[in-house]
Amino acid sequence: MEQPIAAAGLTKTFGDFTAVDGIDLTIEPGESFAMLGPNGAGKSSTMRMVSTVSPITSGSLRIFGMDPHVDGPAIRDRLGVVAQENNLDDELSVVENIILYGRYFGLSWKEARAKATELLGFAQLEDRADARVTSLSGGMKRRLAIARALVNDPDLVLLDEPTTGLDPQARHLLWQRLYELKERGVTLLLTTHYMDEAEQLADRLVVMDHGTIVAQGAPAELIAEHVTREVLEVRYPPEAEIDLESLGLRLESLTDRILIYTDDGEATMTELVNSGRTPSSSLVRRASLEDVFLALTGRRLVE
């Protein structure tokens, strides 16, 4: 199969505002790829250009080797698009949402109906087939939007913030479904501002900020490259004047706590206690992509 996505110097501007600032991006068949970044980083604008609905401002973009400006219909024929909004049709039932969408891809009624039944099984919505869309929970609507996007057996599935706004249980169920897609070899491109989502689902990812790519690689690579293995989080009373600089470790001061980057959190903690700098509370955890983002930009992902 051709490269699902190849972008070079891809740029999108809205008037004076540059949403995407000359990014290079390639995604290989079967890969699960994430764009991680805060709101306004340019993830969704990139997604909309890839889905061919938004024209590129400059640079080059090829989807399956085709130009989205010229071959939009042929490209969309092979895409599954799950936008940030579900965009489900409230006037149709759950199963009709999939069937009538499938018809645009040239499926016969019979094929579309069979496909819809199969996808409702995948999305664990079989028992809601004839329900009105308005009666579904947020997580169910999201699963239906994903099921609908799979009706044409897409070669590339675009997921814009697939779990934003869902409760933890619904998120985990959705991750499980997406993981199954990934296992089947479907190429996935997802945007997220949750680092755990990217760690769960992505083989490779780019960290975006202000329309540019600030780092890329596999989640574990990025963590190894930009931060230490562990993070010791400590809190001190506001009036305490504690000197942590002498530890010789990288520090990040957040509003309510201080992060100490160390390869051995317990040892660092012992050192603090032995030197009379016992914090009022402490926590040792594995470093995550959140720390990578903080290290790269000095800001947190979700404020």
Binding site: V53, G72, E91, Y104
Partner: peptide, 15 residues
């Protein structure tokens, strides 16, 4: 804008 019919229809081969 917000109804699912047109916004989702243009993610199919329909132009």
């Amino acid at each position: 804008k917000w109804r699912g019919n047109y916004v989702s229809a243009v993610t199919t081969p329909l132009s």
